[in-house]
């Protein structure tokens, strides 16, 4: 496929890159999109997922290149291999989407998410929460006599695990940023 000058796993390539059979297995993929930083682009991407009935597990967006007017959108989505290929191809059709990368296919990637947790409790519960936060390298960013707010960064699984532990200890509120991801290496 070198004639196409398209990186394995990216937009225009997907038609050539189908797995042997249409499988029913649900897969989770992390897609990274480089898009034009204009007000409508997020609506176009979300509208595509909503309009065609695809799943969004998480979505993050921010400008990454001010002079180049570029934003990066990281979407975590689930679907059968055929649906994932179709999502990539459909994203590639959006005029203001310049690049579509499937980080799950293109190589190993680093995925990080930031979350803040409000935990309300007293006595031993409070001490236990603080001890677990230390183990997870979560920081206390706010505290009262009856509550903490922890800030934690990590892979989504780590944050899920921390949330599971905090639940019996008085977890009151959670805010998560969604996943940001980059391919490892050069």
């Amino acid at each position: 496929m070198s004639a196409l000058h398209i990186k394995e796993g990216s937009t225009g390539h997907s038609a050539y890159n189908l797995r042997p059979t249409f499988s029913d297995v649900q897969e989770k993929h992390t897609l990274a999109l480089l898009v034009e930083n204009d007000p409508g682009v997020l609506a176009r991407v979300i509208g595509l997922f909503a309009g065609r009935g695809y799943n969004i597990e998480s979505l993050t967006v921010a400008e990454v290149d001010h002079t180049g007017h570029l934003s990066r959108i990281t979407v975590v989505t689930t679907g059968t291999p055929q649906v994932i290929e179709q999502i990539k191809a459909q994203l590639g059709r959006i005029v203001s989407v310049y690049e579509v990368h499937d980080l799950t296919v293109e190589g190993s990637s680093v995925e990080r998410e930031l979350a803040i947790f409000k935990v309300v409790g007293e006595g031993n519960q409070r001490v236990e929460a603080l001890r677990l936060a230390d183990i997870f390298r979560a920081n206390v960013v706010d505290s009262t006599l009856t509550s903490f707010i922890f800030e934690i960064t990590g892979a989504p699984e780590k944050i899920d695990a921390f949330a599971d532990l905090m639940r019996p200890l008085g977890l009151a509120e959670v805010a998560r940023t969604g996943v940001a991801a980059l391919l490892r290496g050069v």
């Binding site: 196409l4 225009g12 038609a15 050539y16 189908l18 055929q82 191809a89 590639g92 059709r93």
Partner: peptide, 17 residues
């Protein structure tokens, strides 16, 4: 010409974009 048309509903053996 549209990669999203290929393999959308029918599995294709020889795809040409």
């Amino acid at each position: 010409i549209d990669p999203s048309s290929i393999n959308k509903v029918i599995r294709i053996d020889i795809p040409i974009v």
